[in-house]
Design a binder for these strands. Structure first.
Ligand SMILES: [Mn+2]
Ligand SMILES: [Mn+2]
Ligand SMILES: [Mn+2]
Ligand SMILES: [Mn+2]
Lengths: 217, 217
DNA sequence: AAAAATTTTTAGATTTGTCTAAATAATGAA
DNA sequence: TTCATTATTTAGACAAATCTAAAAATTTTT
């Protein structure tokens, strides 16, 4: 059994693993809002528990045990987010913080029953895939909106930034999951993107475009 | 904002307040599975935060602020228990431990929406009243089964012990909420009670009888 | 390749909640 | 009322998770 804090470290390491291998101390410390020295301490502890492989000054990778623990936390996080949106009428920008707490509730029965109650959803309100009880899930082939060229079309199927500020911004621009879009122009000097949604022209910054994930069509 | 641990102390003090005023250190230490010395430390802290009134060697009572905090935790605990039984098909003996964790999730929106989703239930799966968002609830006039006399009739409307072992035992005897019962005899030498449930004679120990709450009819 | 800058680790301290052992206060019996 | 028992508090210590400041390793620049 892991503590609340250990679970958070495992989850962060899991997410950062998709960006860099191995995961560096500073990357963790930035994400989790703690000093690098504290991260080193915790990594040593996780290493002694057999949840990560740690090489001094090189960084960490998850062991199988660490990864499956992390995936289970991600599963719980995303199922709770679906619950909040589908059953309790939360908006997609209101769920993340609450799910950060709910993901640590310890009960297999609870999470399996919740999965069933929600009808075994495959994706969460931000388009992220939900692992099944064995930790399996299909990685979707999504491309960042910022990678598209003028004329490209597609559907918004995910976002890689979950802050309320960002999601509210998207909502205001009607850039929500399922919406069809078409690129009109990518401005050379700042990388901002002009695009078409629901017959409306909109302009978004390169920053925003990087966080919107598209299924091309 | 209180820590997980502080919340648990407040809740225990609240429950024990119905038995003794003020609440004694040892009573808390037994209930919460910690040593009396640790309880003293925590009580001092809660006192400094204005959540309890503490007189050395006399015990503690909740302040208004402490009581309303405690009631809110009880509200959350009981609403989650209803959720688990009504929506996720948990049995009444499976909910308490999970609710002990869920009651600490911090989100007013969550709990108000949950209340609405459950259709504003008045009692939890053990017959305990659920405080509304202002902390108000009707105290039910229940009497312990162990206080009844031969010939007395009534309905099981609550239990004052929530352990799985106890509740499974009741289930086995068909002594669940809503059942009509009639006392046949109270045995003098051990206080055990013979009673009628669904045309069946059953015998329960005095211990068990004390934990079953009845509305007389 | 050496010097400078950056990253990571170590050392020592702090806070929270807990413990054991000893001291003190309250209660009950003689 | 004095003695013995029980309840409660104090003193000092410990584990978990964090911090700051300093040391060590790694990477980058010259
Ligand atoms: Mn989230
Ligand atoms: Mn999500
Ligand atoms: Mn309960
Ligand atoms: Mn209950």
């Amino acid at each position: 059994m892991q503590s609340y804090t250990e679970e958070n470290y495992l989850k962060i390491i899991y997410h950062l693993s998709e960006i860099s291998h191995p995961v560096l101390t500073n990357a963790i410390s930035e994400r989790i809002q703690t000093k690098a020295a504290s991260v080193t301490d915790m990594i040593k502890k996780l290493s002694e528990k057999g949840l990560v492989n740690y090489v001094k000054y090189q960084g960490v990778t998850l062991t199988d045990k660490g990864r499956s623990t992390a995936i289970n936390i991600v599963r719980k996080h995303r199922l709770w987010e679906v619950f909040l949106v589908d059953k309790l009428n939360f908006k997609w920008d209101e769920v993340h913080e609450v799910a950060e707490e709910l993901e640590h509730i310890q009960s297999n029965l609870l999470i399996e029953r919740l999965d069933e109650f929600l009808n075994f959803p495959r994706v969460d309100p931000h388009g992220d895939p939900i692992p099944d009880k064995h930790g399996n899930f299909a990685e979707l082939a999504l491309v960042k909106l910022s990678k598209l060229k003028p004329g490209d079309q597609g559907t918004i199927t995910g976002v890689s930034e979950h802050s309320s500020a960002f999601l509210k911004h998207l909502e205001k621009l009607s850039l929500t999951l399922g919406k069809q879009i078409q690129i009109i122009e990518v401005l050379a000097f700042d990388g901002s993107v002009e695009l078409l949604v629901e017959q409306q022209k909109t302009n978004i910054s390169r920053e925003v475009a990087k966080y919107i994930l598209i299924t091309k069509s």
